[in-house]
Design a protein around this nucleic acid. Structure first.
Lengths: 126, 126
DNA sequence: GCTTGACTTCGAGTGTGCTCCAACTGCGAG
DNA sequence: CTCGCAGTTGGAGCACACTCGAAGTCAAGC
């Protein structure tokens, strides 16, 4: 049995496609994934763990560019952890604002929904 | 003084660009905007009101395609209000799910933030 | 030993939602 | 009258994040 997971297994696990996984590696979000004797990718635990964070970053709307900035900090060593922290904290703030904007905007749509329900109720009682 | 607002005024009011406003009209999200004697758009109250809803739909992630479906229902008359209501309710559900996914994903990032704070505190006390 | 299926690379293509350019028109201020 | 500005059109271009096609490799199962 081979060490590590194949691209297909990681795709299944992360919800990304195999295409996307290769592309993430290509653009530098993932470090070069080790290959087995046949040249096939074998994702290590740390690769999958990184993907865990990366997918959450993406899912919360962080642009790939900024994810890459973060990863480059990670690669540069541990001395820049304050900078990494700041990047994450800033993103956190962005996401919180995002959530509250969604809630605010949804309220407008909710009012519309209420209005339609009113129309339809009125029709009903005609 | 002319009736209605110019494209620039509506842009300022809605936060969309003039380019986008013309494009919305072109793709059918807005009914053809009446022109003044010089051929310039004059947005009526109802156009601006529609934009109010449209921008909230977009801001909450509704694809333009689906917005268009809604607008086509509006154009088709009042008999399909139940269908419009369903579309809005479905979108509402989507947005609520979106919010809770953001919260869930943010929690992962928060854990990372906490870890970095831990590292940095430890460093501090070295 | 052949087929099947998952993998490889490279580069091109796609969908979405704008965004902009070029060339032109018309209005108001000075 | 001229300037500058805001508007017009049609069509091209762009950023982003994938997504896919083609052609080939390899190993396992029948």
């Amino acid at each position: 049995m081979e060490e590590g997971l194949s691209v297909g297994e990681v795709a299944a696990k992360t919800g990304l496609t195999a295409y996307t996984l290769r592309w993430y590696e290509q653009v530098g979000l993932l470090d070069p994934i080790p290959r087995d004797h046949a040249g096939r990718r074998r994702y290590r635990l740390r690769d999958v763990e990184r993907l865990d964070l990366l997918t959450k970053m993406r899912a919360t709307g962080m642009p790939v560019r900024e994810m890459l900035r973060y990863i480059e900090l990670v690669r540069a060593g541990t001395h820049n952890r304050r900078e990494r922290l700041e990047l994450l904290e800033q993103h956190r703030t962005t996401v919180l604002r995002q959530i509250s904007e969604l809630e605010r905007d949804l309220a407008v749509i909710d009012r519309k929904i209420t209005r339609y329900r009113g129309y339809l109720d009125a029709e009903q009682t005609d």
